[in-house]
């Protein structure tokens, strides 16, 4: 276990925090959850770095997908889920395409994001999309300017989707409510304000 330093000076306590990895500080179940949700055998990663080398986000940030894979294997749940870099994956799947161990690092990241959400860790824009879909069926809904443009084109103002057929919306809301997604999104967004 990491050495606890009860220094009175909080800044010093943080600066000199024990950074060693100790197995008991980690959660071995985390790896299993990532593998289960992401449907990829993260424990087979041999850390070649092809993923980070392929990653469009890596060169412009501290995001290292290889490191997330390593941390998953080591069960470093807390670090993975609270790391803001977790949300810098554009899900381009270049790493997955090239992974020589035939793993899907992208899906491991998606799994970690799912696990983060279970702890209410999620960027607000994701939740706003949920609210929009709950309301209209669309993540990017129609607007007046667009309606006018559609009309000009000879299209109906509302497309043949939930916009034109709002009677389908209750079904969609039932699905989202089944997972309490809207409820959680509303709550997390409200708490963040």
């Amino acid at each position: 276990m990491a050495v606890k330093k009860d220094y009175k000076d909080q800044n010093l306590a943080e600066k000199l925090r024990d950074r060693k990895y100790y197995a008991p500080d980690s959660n071995p179940e985390f790896l299993k959850e990532v593998e289960n949700i992401g449907q990829t055998a993260a424990h087979m990663c041999y850390q070649c770095g092809t993923c980070t080398g392929s990653c469009p986000s890596a060169p412009r940030s501290s995001y290292r997908i290889r490191l997330f894979m390593r941390k998953a294997v080591l069960g470093l749940e807390e670090e993975c889920l609270t790391d803001p870099d977790l949300w810098l994956c554009t899900t381009c799947y270049s790493c997955t395409d090239r992974c020589p161990r035939d793993l899907a690092p992208t899906d491991a990241i998606m799994a970690m994001r799912n696990l983060a959400f279970k702890r209410d860790i999620v960027p607000r824009n994701f939740l706003q999309t949920v609210q929009l879909i709950y309301k209209s069926g669309h993540g990017v809904p129609n607007n007046d300017a667009n309606r006018a443009a559609r009309k000009k084109l000879g299209l109906e103002e509302e497309p043949e989707t939930t916009h034109k057929y709002p009677e389908y919306l209750p079904g969609i809301r039932k699905i989202l409510d089944h997972y309490r997604l809207k409820e959680n999104a509303d709550r997390i967004l409200a708490e963040g304000e």
Binding site: T90, N114, F126, I175
Partner: peptide, 10 residues
Amino acid sequence: GAFGSIDLNV
């Protein structure tokens, strides 16, 4: 991206 990140089941 948005939904897959939050809950793949949804």
